[in-house]
Amino acid sequence: MVLLIFVAFILLCLGVDAIVQLRKQKKGVVQEVAYSFPGFFSENTIVVPKGLYFDKTHTWAFMDKDGMVKIGIDDFFPHVTGLLTNIKMKNSGETIKKNEVFLSIIRNGKQLNIKAPVSGIIKAQNKALLTNTSLINSFPYSDGWVYMIEPTNWVREIQFLFIAENFKIWLRNEFIRLKDFLAVMQKTNETRYAHVVLQDGGELKEGILMDLRSEVWEDFQTHFIDTVK
């Protein structure tokens, strides 16, 4: 009888320990998947998934099995603008052309005009963006897609796009250009905003344009976005 009680006690202890360990594992999984923005961004924090084509206009394209192409903007602009509050989209049936404006992203009335990575006819809008623009900030490559198009010059135009690995390399120069733009801005009439766009050590803050005047957004459009060749 004593032996049976002892065995039962051991089994009970093992069971309690197993439950405790299981709870620790579950807690660990939650902590592992939890994500918080670091407060700064660089070419190393920009998400660039494999399997997509990327353009110098900071947009992406992906061809589905049915030949339709889904397009959107990459992870770069959401870090520059901060949380988007509105967008301007084209309608289904309209034609878009590579390197022409196909979307405007807006924050509190200040906007940037984004150019298309490829040409085609819009077959569908992502209507979810009309009521939840922040999907572009949170999920630019999935729920934040912009249009589904029927491509009209796909074979030729993808020759000018990047695969993920090459796009990451190209991004290094983009961050040099971005810092150059900010340096010029601060030397002219925006020195009071230096603490807004740069952290201690010169790292770029999230949403660097977020609190800057509309004139700065216009300069960014003219001297950064529109100068890409």
Rank of each mutant, 00 (worst) to 15 (best):
K98D: 05
T95D: 10
G67H: 12
K123S: 09
V69H: 00
F54T: 01
R107D: 01
L130G: 04
I105P: 00
F62V: 06
M63H: 03
A116T: 06
K115M: 10
S92P: 05
M68S: 13
D64R: 14
K115H: 11
W60Y: 15
H58W: 02
T45Q: 06
T81W: 04
I96N: 01
K56A: 07
T57S: 13
F77S: 02
V101Y: 05
I96V: 15
K97A: 05
T57F: 05
F62N: 06
V30R: 11
F41R: 00
M89Y: 03
L112G: 02
S104C: 10
K70M: 08
K90V: 06
E32A: 15
N86M: 08
T85S: 15
K97Y: 14
T57E: 09
I87P: 00
S134A: 14
V30E: 14
K26H: 09
N44L: 08
D75M: 04
D74R: 02
I122D: 00
E43D: 12
K127E: 14
S104W: 07
T57G: 11
K98P: 03
Q111A: 13
E94G: 05
Y53A: 02
V47L: 14
K26R: 14
N132D: 13
K56N: 13
N44S: 12
N113R: 11
A128V: 10
Y35T: 11
Q125M: 13
I121W: 03
V118I: 15
S119F: 00
D75Y: 02
F76L: 05
P49N: 11
K115C: 04
G82C: 05
P78F: 01
N113I: 03
K50S: 15
D55E: 04
S119Q: 00
V29P: 00
